[in-house]
Amino acid sequence: MDGYLITILSNIGMVSFVALSAYILLLSGQISFGQQAYFGIGAYVAGIATVMWQWPLAGALLFGSLAAGAAAGLVGLATLRLSGIYFAMATLAFAEIMRIAAELFVYRRDIGGIESGPDGVDGFRDIRYFFANEFSPLETCLIVYALLATVLAILCIIERTRAGRMLRQIGEDPLLAEVHGINVMSVRMIAALAAGAVAGLGGGLYAHLMTYVEPKSFDIMLGVHALAYGLIGGLGTAFGPILGVLIDIGLLESTRIFHGYRMIVFGGLVAVLLIVRPRGLLDEVAVSRIRRALRRRRDAGD
């Protein structure tokens, strides 16, 4: 595989984590414009862990993910009682606070003769774990996809459990869900924690693959895209947001067919889909049809 293709695939993989993060909250009925903050927290924390504390990658990614999840939990305490536009504004405000805090965040130390660490607006450079440990681009890409596949598998399994159905019930009609015995606030809280952790994991990978992270790596455009991926690809299955990422990065950005017009095409696509198919290509109706067709085929095969 050539280097360009591997880079594109790695990008698709990393952004998919943020898309899945926004998707989890969309399922719970909450529109967050702030999932990029957890991506940023994961990136900085995991980067600090390998560079400044010399942690192994697995521990650093896990710690970055947990830190992002914990931050999401704290934000959740303050915002989950809000809904609709108020929740969207509160999450966006938090994400902007985090971005600006990263511009002010300086934590420099001498590591092996080189001054390293986050340096305010200049960001956090030389996160050289993959380079220092001689990982090839293909190997790092495989790490991204192994973790993405794990997260996807966990989400697919959860969707088939009672908890997954609860999440969808809350997303459609929280009051009805509450009357049917579901503690809406605690399920929303768990969803927010999980969504934060998933975004944080993607951020940790991003910092190490790119070898740097800066405050504008997680500005509002990342959050807007993350939301749009679920809305384009569909909210009926966890593969929906992945499809959205494939369409945007795989088709629009990478092939350069729409070079220079990508955002116009992307924005137009979102607008058209919101009108003709408000819950995306793989919406609940499509997923239900596919499931029943598969079941019929399986039953016919027996």
Partner: peptide, 13 residues
């Protein structure tokens, strides 16, 4: 819950 299957409407409760 219109977007859930008939069975999924009943399972959590």
């Amino acid at each position: 819950f219109h977007r859930l299957s008939v069975l999924d409407n009943v399972l959590p409760i």
